[in-house]
Design a protein around this nucleic acid. Sequence first.
DNA 1: CCGCCTGGTTAAGACTATGTAAACAGCCGT
DNA 2: ACGGCTGTTTACATAGTCTTAACCAGGCGG
Lengths: 229, 229
Amino acid sequence: MTDRENMLLLVSADHAATGLLGKWLEMNGYRTCVVTTIASALSEIRQRRPLLILLDRQLLVTEGGRRDQFPSTVPIIVLQPFDKSCGQDECLTELEAGFDLVFCSPHSRELLAHIRAILRRHQMPAAAPSVLRVQGLAMDTARHEVTVGGTLVELTPKEFRILHQFLLSPGVVLSRQELLNRVWGEDYALEEHALDVHIHSLRQKIESDPSKPRFVVTIRGIGYKLQAS
Amino acid sequence: MTDRENMLLLVSADHAATGLLGKWLEMNGYRTCVVTTIASALSEIRQRRPLLILLDRQLLVTEGGRRDQFPSTVPIIVLQPFDKSCGQDECLTELEAGFDLVFCSPHSRELLAHIRAILRRHQMPAAAPSVLRVQGLAMDTARHEVTVGGTLVELTPKEFRILHQFLLSPGVVLSRQELLNRVWGEDYALEEHALDVHIHSLRQKIESDPSKPRFVVTIRGIGYKLQAS
DNA sequence: CCGCCTGGTTAAGACTATGTAAACAGCCGT
DNA sequence: ACGGCTGTTTACATAGTCTTAACCAGGCGG
């Protein structure tokens, strides 16, 4: 078998939507390729062997596409614009026709999670770069690597887990107690101050000026948050 | 590997819900099996090898279950009762934790369609190339040979299987448990430390300086990974 | 302006995970 | 049955990580 190009194929005639979505996906470590008709999609699939196809439902309807036109080995997610009505029955039809998912939510993070879930299950080589990003900070959970501005930083297990929690809800203030619960577990008696120490060493590693943190900022009297913007 | 029992495992403490759902699934050709705790689910999984697991989110929360308690080869759909609120973030957390779908709709036909979609995709055999490479390391699965920088190295069966797992997903961290499951089988009581010993002897054979491994690197507190770049 | 409270910083000891070696056990072919 | 090869367990060594505790700095209210 030829090498897969580790790419997602976007099939939609809606330029605005594909532009945004493509950007978002590339920010999250996927290479993308956009085509606007089913015919061109089919030829692209033969040549480039995408990992997964994101197919606009609009196109499916107007061009009368069917699942069995596409290779059955490539997973396909059907995208339904969230502003259009999405009747239960219609979604069902597509699922039953052999598509892997009908996605009708405006939340792109959710779409990303679904893409990852499907690729993960399908065991595709180097498929799911499960990367969380904020500014120049990136965490690849699968590889267990963290980079700041492209350079790798080595974190201890606790530091990694703490930063992971921040990245799961960027911009949201997490109280000390909340963090302790999430990282150490609900029932764990621990000097609350231990967290501060870990935050400190985390800052030493990811902040350019640890005394003026840009990422992990203190909210006095509450806890910490990861600066999102 | 023993024959699968072609069965869906329902994990929920809500008898009313599981009764109805079980009936519905059996009407649609699936054999089902109901358990009410995660612990009993785990033993049932080992014995009966279900095709797919339907897991009540309630139970996941109250018993503090995590995805990696379950064998990664079995797809899991998390069920969220439709009357309870299902925040976007919560669903996301589960998807990102490795579950295949979070289902929060009251329509059982839709659930059925999702089950079919996931099983359909899951049962597709993934085509595997016979030579796997990373840097100077090459494994020919057909010939059952491993070479480092062109020179043949002799591995024992266990060492070969361990290295094979690494090469199937280069760069991604495999937890000890994950490796044990993949190499020894899902249900095998084994001192976790046995793996370390095999890793040690594997390193002796494939690393130029076994004390500073370039290929099989340790991720403290998690497991090991094969350095991809 | 002083003192308290919150968080920052540092270092030392305790602890845990992993590495390493060696003994033991099982299998297989001779 | 014997001997060698694998795999597993045990024991000990070591390096890395976590936690505790003590001290320091700065903001805020009195």
